[in-house]
Write a protein that binds this DNA or RNA. Structure first.
Lengths: 212, 212
DNA sequence: GCAATTTTTGACCGATTGGACAAACGTTAG
DNA sequence: CTAACGTTTGTCCAATCGGTCAAAAATTGC
């Protein structure tokens, strides 16, 4: 039950820790935990390995800190999904926010994807606890909309999965998306194209049957 | 320009190579290339490390063979997407086939996901060549359907991406899906639920505007 | 300025990694 | 039986891994 000892950090410690975490995000998101080495991270952060280990006591420590910090912001978009307000507007807003995260924080998305791909050994409790609770809660809201006939009746959980999958795809499978679209359409505009397509797909796919 | 020397394999070689590739698929799909070790693969295949290296000359060799073999079957579902036949039936068939692959070959899906996540260092030429060509070709077919007013007009490339993303999600993010659905709904039925949801989403999302 | 403290570094450690190799073992055709 | 060939193993190696440590260097508080 000990509270984690309060940091009490110097200016240099604060700065260096930021640089290390940023470098580690690069390396971990590309190679996964086992594939990444402390030397790689240290070099990317522009310091020696022992120096890095002065700020983080182990490779595991860096990774844990990174994941912990990621999760705070990762669930934010879903939390914003609100009961009050038009269902279609709410869902479109959620899709847009998730797609913006894929665009602006692709490394975080890949870090998460790597962790899940490897069986989520470090965040399984969070998946079964915090995440499941949140999703169940939001699924209940969506169910309410369906019962009220405001959107088409389908499975709320799989709806959420499909939003996760389609949006994160543009971060996790970025190289494939670029390769297939080619230099023309794979440029900066690909996220706007994706946004247009996904909003269209989900809005039409969920339009209530009564509203013809 | 040398053709690869013809294998000319004994019975034991054939059997052992199969066992090794199967074990390697387990290990690579879970840990990625760098995270996997030859010892792990050898143990999973029930043989010693030197023995394994008698059948494959290096770790890279195993991985390359695995990826090569994967790609053959990976694109098959998309190749089957045919111009003749009802567009909706064709697309539904494609979604179903992709979802079945996620269910029946999750290790292959994760191996592919790992490779893409790490920047596709070993299959980039194939993405920009064979894959892009195939996708462009099928996108043209879909475009034809749209011009003919048989399905709603959207972006064929992003349509294909969204089908890839949603179906592969059930293999690559399996642990997350199970964790969120819980023991009840996360059981064997989750693929039928997913199939129902996805067919519904895409069919409604792509229904031609004229057919009210 | 100077002493206390924080930061950085080079050298080093045991463990694990991918892989080499010769010797031993099995199998089989004649 | 035996020679030829295919298979398996124990041992070994250099490189790399995560991490330690003491000492040097830089910074800070007074």
């Amino acid at each position: 039950m000990d509270a984690p000892a309060k940091p009490r950090r110097t200016r240099i410690q604060t700065e260096k820790r930021v640089r290390i975490l940023d470098a580690a995000l690069d390396v971990f998101s590309q190679h996964g935990f086992r594939g990444a080495t402390i030397d790689q991270i240290a070099e990317a952060a522009g310091m020696s390995k022992p120096n890095l280990l002065y700020y983080f006591k182990s490779k595991e420590d860096i990774h844990t800190t990174l994941i912990q910090r990621l999760l705070e912001t990762w669930l934010a978009p879903l939390r914003e999904l609100d009961d009050i307000g038009d269902p279609m507007t709410e869902l479109r807003g959620y899709i847009r926010r998730k797609l913006e995260m894929a665009r602006d924080y692709p490394r975080e998305s890949r870090l998460f994807a790597n962790e899940i791909l490897q069986g989520a050994p470090r965040i399984m409790p969070m998946l079964e606890g915090e995440l499941k609770t949140l999703v169940d809660e939001k699924a209940e809201i969506i169910k309410g909309w369906m019962r009220a006939g405001r959107i088409a009746p389908t499975d709320p959980w799989h709806l959420i999965f499909s939003i996760w999958a389609t949006t994160q795809h543009y971060a996790d499978f970025d190289v494939q998306v670029r390769a297939v679209l080619g230099p023309r359409r794979g440029g900066d505009g690909r996220f706007e194209d994706a946004a247009r397509f996904l909003e269209n797909l989900f809005l039409r796919g969920l339009a209530p049957p009564t509203a013809q």
